[in-house]
């Protein structure tokens, strides 16, 4: 088990390093932060002074080594726009994002999985078809369309909810619903197909033939076996808790990580973008690590594979 965890931790570190390196190179070769940040009309003297002040006049490999060194010393850099610690800026925005993504994740789990399981257990029924239709609709409508549609209905037409911004709990309703709809659809479809596959397995027939109650068959035999693919999807959703609100935050003017990322990329605020990507990568990697461990817990056969 220790070897299993160690290997995955090592892989996680390599993944994070790859993400950081990729982000570093792409950000620097796709635009000079001085020109981007200062705009088109600024004199060349000002651009040169900016480059010098932020070390952008140094060769790329020197900048890279300095950056990696600073990461290992716990320094994630200073924002070129705000002249403040990039980490501090990012940490300040995390609660706002989690205020949307955690309730959205809960909605996905609470509605998506039961809907999919129910549809699988009532296959070919009207409810099953309804669930399939709604789930396809849910995850095929882009969030920016869904968000604007909800605003048109609930804010502009009915005047029931705020159209954007962060204030009362009511401000978070529309963005949370917008974020959850696609995930609900996705989870419902995955849960349905996983359950249908499991329900066709011989051990389900055996359990039924033994005279077990239908609910016991479902809860004790079908659901645990169907959980592996569902956990995989949920793992991705958990990993996207920080990164998954970029579009929705822009539509609803929500001051979270997503908007900070968009603004920082647009301005080539290197330290902030790299800090956000580092955190997102770390979240995704940790989430995947937990999912890997959960596999072993859910399916004892996988523990043996992990040991080898």
């Amino acid at each position: 088990m220790i070897r299993f965890v160690s290997i995955r931790l090592l892989r996680a570190l390599v993944t994070i390093l790859a993400v950081v390196t990729f982000a570093f190179v792409v950000l620097r070769i796709s635009g000079d932060p001085a020109q981007v940040m200062l705009g088109p009309d600024v004199p060349q003297d000002a651009v040169d002074a900016f480059r010098e002040a932020w070390g952008l006049d140094q060769p790329l490999w020197i900048q890279y080594l300095a950056y990696i060194h600073s990461i290992f010393t716990g320094d994630l850099g200073i924002s070129m726009r705000d002249k403040e610690s990039a980490l501090q800026l990012v940490l300040e925005r995390i609660p706002a994002t989690l205020q949307l993504t955690i309730p959205a994740l809960l909605l996905k789990l609470i509605i998506g999985i039961p809907a999919g399981v129910y549809a699988a257990l009532h296959r070919q029924s009207g409810i099953d078809r309804g669930v399939i239709m709604l789930s396809i609709l849910g995850f095929t409508i882009p969030s920016f369309v869904m968000g604007l549609l909800l605003v048109l209905i609930f804010s502009v037409t009915l005047g029931l909810l705020p159209s954007g911004g962060q204030g009362t709990w009511m401000h978070s309703l529309l963005p949370t619903i917008t974020m959850s709809i696609g995930g609900i659809g996705l989870l419902a479809r995955f849960s349905r197909s996983a359950m249908i596959e499991v329900m066709g397995q011989p051990y389900i027939r055996t359990a039924s033939a033994k005279g077990l109650r239908w609910s016991d068959v479902v809860w004790q035999h079908a659901l645990p076996n169907a959980a592996v693919p569902i956990v995989t999807i949920v793992g991705f959703m958990v990993g996207a808790l920080l990164a998954g609100a970029v579009v929705v935050e822009s539509i609803f003017s929500w001051p979270g990580i997503g908007r900070l990322l968009v603004v920082s990329v647009a301005n080539r605020d290197l330290a902030v973008v790299q800090c956000i990507l580092l955190l997102i990568a770390a979240t995704m990697v940790v989430s995947n690590l937990i999912v890997d461990l959960l596999y072993g817990w859910l399916d004892p056969r996988l523990r043996g594979q992990a040991a080898h």
């Binding site: 600024v42 002074a49 002249k83």
Partner: peptide, 11 residues
């Protein structure tokens, strides 16, 4: 001062 300000001021 931000590095760019003197250049902008002199413009």
């Amino acid at each position: 001062l931000p590095a760019s300000v003197p250049g902008i001021g002199r413009r």
